[in-house]
């Protein structure tokens, strides 16, 4: 079965991912993503009932560090790469939504 990502879905995903996308690009990307998802459709169809998920190749557990203070960066190093700084802080345009 062919996967068809709609332009609306692409625009929703672009919004989630914070990527500005023109209407034209949305159509183009919908086609490309559909093609990729179509390709992985075989994997989606595999019957993997009972096979556990592997989220990581390692079987390590409990990797912990001691609660000891390490040197911080200097203020210059912290703010040196920032596009906009004000009063020792990172300046951003107004925020419309509250923190979720």
């Amino acid at each position: 079965m062919a996967v068809e990502l709609t332009v609306a879905e692409v625009r929703h995903v672009a919004r989630l991912a914070r990527l500005e996308l023109s209407a034209e690009e949305s159509v183009h990307v919908a086609g490309q993503l559909s093609a990729i998802l179509d390709h992985v459709e075989a994997v989606r169809a595999l019957d993997l009932e009972g096979i556990p998920a592997t989220s990581h190749p390692l079987e390590l557990v409990n990797v912990l560090r001691a609660d000891e203070v390490r040197p911080c960066l200097t203020r210059e190093e912290v703010l040196g790469g920032a596009p906009a700084v004000e009063d020792g802080r990172f300046a951003v345009p107004r925020i419309l939504g509250e923190t979720p």
């Binding site: 919004r15 990527l19 107004r94 925020i95």
Partner: peptide
Amino acid sequence: EDVEQMNARTRA
């Protein structure tokens, strides 16, 4: 205009 638009334009 706002932080979301700045994010989205920057990333695009």
